[in-house]
Every structure is written in structure tokens, then in C-alpha cells.
Simulated assay, not measured.
Amino acid sequence: MEAFTYQFTALRGIQAGREFYVVMCPLKLIPKIFLFDEEEIPPELRAQRTLNRARVPEIARYLLDNPTEYVFSSITASIDGEVSFEPRASKGQERNVGSLVVPMTARFLINDGQHRRAAIEEALKENPQLGDETVSVVFFIDAGLGRSQQLFADLNTHAVRPSKSLGILYDKRDPFSRLALSLAESVPVFRGLTEMEKTTISNRSPKLFTLSAIYQATQELLHKHRNDSVTRADLPIARDFWTTLSETIPEWRQVIKREVSAVILRNQYVHAHGVVLHAFGIAGRTLLATYPDDWKKRLAPLAEVNWLRTNTTQWEGRSMEHGKMSKALINVNLTANLIKQIIDLPLSADEAALEKRVAKQA
């Protein structure tokens, strides 16, 4: 072990065959040893969401205003370094009570609790006396970025959920998450144009689709559900479909070549939104099933479609409601129906019934 170390009184436990440790950490030590990932690091190389600084003052104020009543849940962190546990006894219950010795050069990565950590730092500036109080910390031994990202996904499964895109990005256990990420990295219209962290895209973002939209649309395309098994054929089929569509739609080709910005496409065209991507997945599933050998050439009519949002004759009441894009399921299905008709695919009985019902209401 190195000469300079942190020593914590700790309880040792076992989860999933791995040792972990619970310690009581003085609040004044929290800001010094725990770091969160910097915002400029791409989300796929982080193990946390970006810090929402707007939440920090509220949590800090709660701590300061309730010095005799506040309650903080445990912080969960990974230690990247050579640690040792020195038990009080070699057997009996006290074999799991002892000292956790961590070199000061070790890296501490918060898996859950970065907002509490930032709030503690802010509160200590106003009331340093809080520094001698403690918060429980659960330490896991770091097993690499993938393990830390999976810890993040697991810890948030039954808590306040992260965005769908970030959950998909970090969930290594869901085979479809891995498939969606592969598509985001390999399909021309997705590569470099996918919002990996958020479920919605801001007005000035250079991204075109969210990872969650790709995930959902490809589920429809392959007729899969979360945690369904993924076959060897699924990725090449999905990649081939989305790549062919990328080459078919003129405006998508333009954004791939950077001849037009994603901002302009989202502002002016319906096909630059998740509702239409979802609809493409639905129509694509029928296309692949109906024409497995020559489906590519049957996408050709999509190149001649007026995809402009100003084309309200086609898109109002389908992908748009009152001039705004709508993600409602009925709008997804009505958009898919129109795409099917454009590429000469038959509607199912339910789809035909939906068309009749909407026509009567018009």
C-alpha cells in the first residue's frame, strides 16, 4: 500500500459475488475525494448524467435550513485503486468489521449521489460546522467503465429514472440497447447525429434523432420488445433498412453530407422527428415481411414525397396536430398508414378501421 492513505471504519458485505463496503464519511471530506464526470466528456465515456446545477441550491438549502432534522441517503461510489480491508477478527461476525484502507491516489467515482455531493460542498461554505457530521457511503471496487455505467443503470431502475436515451446508452444488460447503440454508430443518418443523453432535442442542437427514438423505431421494425433475445440477423437487417432509407430520402442525404443542418431539417421537415422515424419502423416491418427479397426498390417512392411541415394536406392530423409534431400513438399509426400507402403496402384490418374512423371525424 502507498504511504498516504485514507482509513475508514467499514462494514464489509457481498453482493453478486463481489465485496462492497459501507463507511461513515465526514461531510467535509466529501467534496475533496468525490468527483463527478465533467460535462464536456461524451456521455458514452461517462458513468453518470451531467450535473443539473439548478437542483444543487435547493438541496443545499434543505441541509442548511434543517440542521437537526435533515436526512441524506447513502452515496454510492466506485474506487479505482488498490484497496485493502483489515478485519477486526479472523472469524465470527467481526470478520466483516474493520478498516478500509484506500491510497490517496485512488480515484473515486460517484455512481449515485452527485447532486448530494455538490449540495454538501455548497452548504459547507455557509456552515463549516456541518463538516464533522457524516453521511454513509457505499463503496464498490471499480471494474471499469462498463461496470460503472451498469451500476448507474441498475441504481436508477427503481429510483427517479434517467432519460430514456441515457438509460439505453448505459444499460449493457439489455441486448436491444446494444443493438440500438450499434445502429447509432454505423447508420449514416444516425452516425454523429444522435442525441445520446436526452429524450428531447433542443432547438439549436446539431443532433437529428435521439437514441431512444432509434431504439423504439427499431423495436417496431424488428417486432421486438425490451430484453427480447437479439439474433445474429437482427443488426444487419436493421442497419440495412435504415441505411437504405438514409440513401433514399434526399434531405437525409443532405444532412449526412453536411449540406444542410439538423436544425433546419427539424424546423422544416416531418421526417426529422421521432414520430416519423417510429412510423418508418412500423411500415418497414410490413415491407420486410411482404417483400423480403426486393424491399429496397419499393422504398423509392419515398424520395418523391413532400416531407415539408407546410404540406399540411398530408401531415396535419397524422404526424402533426395544429401545426405541431405529435408523438401520440394514434399519430404514429396514422403516419405509418400513409407511408404504407405511398409505398403500396396493404393496411391491416385495424389500420383500415383507424383510417375510416378518422375520416368520419374529419
Rank of each mutant, 00 (worst) to 15 (best):
E2S: 12
A3P: 10
Y6E: 07
A16M: 04
G17I: 13
V23L: 01
C25M: 15
C25L: 15
P26Y: 12
P26M: 11
I30F: 03
P31V: 04
I33H: 01
I33G: 09
F34W: 12
F36M: 07
I41S: 00
L45K: 12
R46L: 07
R46V: 09
Q48Y: 06
T50G: 01
L51E: 00
V56F: 05
E58S: 13
I59D: 00
L63R: 08
D65N: 15
D65A: 15
D65S: 14
T68W: 04
Y70D: 05
F72G: 05
F72P: 00
S73D: 11
S74I: 03
T76E: 02
S78P: 04
I79H: 09
I79G: 13
A89M: 13
A89N: 04
V97I: 08
S99M: 10
M104T: 15
I110K: 07
D112I: 09
G113P: 02
A118E: 05
A119N: 02
A119S: 07
I120M: 07
E121G: 01
E121A: 14
E122P: 00
E126L: 10
P128G: 08
P128Y: 02
G131Y: 08
E133M: 04
V135L: 09
S136E: 09
S136N: 11
V137L: 05
A143P: 00
G144I: 08
G144S: 11
L145E: 12
G146D: 13
Q150V: 06
Q150P: 00
N156G: 11
T157C: 01
H158M: 10
V160A: 15
V160Y: 01
P162V: 05
P162G: 10
L166W: 02
Y170W: 12
F176E: 10
F176L: 15
F176V: 08
R178T: 01
L183C: 06
L183R: 02
A184F: 02
S186M: 09
V187A: 11
F190Q: 14
L193W: 01
T194M: 06
T199H: 06
S202W: 09
S205I: 13
P206E: 11
P206W: 15
L208N: 11
F209Y: 15
H223K: 12
N227M: 10
N227S: 07
V230P: 01
D234R: 01
P236T: 00
P236E: 00
A238T: 05
R239C: 04
R239W: 02
D240I: 08
F241C: 08
L245P: 08
I256E: 04
K257L: 14
L265P: 00
V270R: 03
V270F: 06
H273C: 01
V276L: 05
L277W: 04
G281R: 01
T286G: 02
Y291L: 10
D293G: 05
W295Q: 09
W295M: 12
L299P: 07
P301T: 06
L302G: 07
N306W: 07
T310R: 13
T312N: 01
Q314R: 02
S319G: 13
E321K: 15
G323R: 05
K324F: 09
N331T: 10
N331I: 03
V332K: 13
T335P: 01
L338H: 12
K340I: 02
I342N: 03
I343V: 09
S348H: 14
E351A: 14
R357G: 12
Q361G: 01
A362P: 00
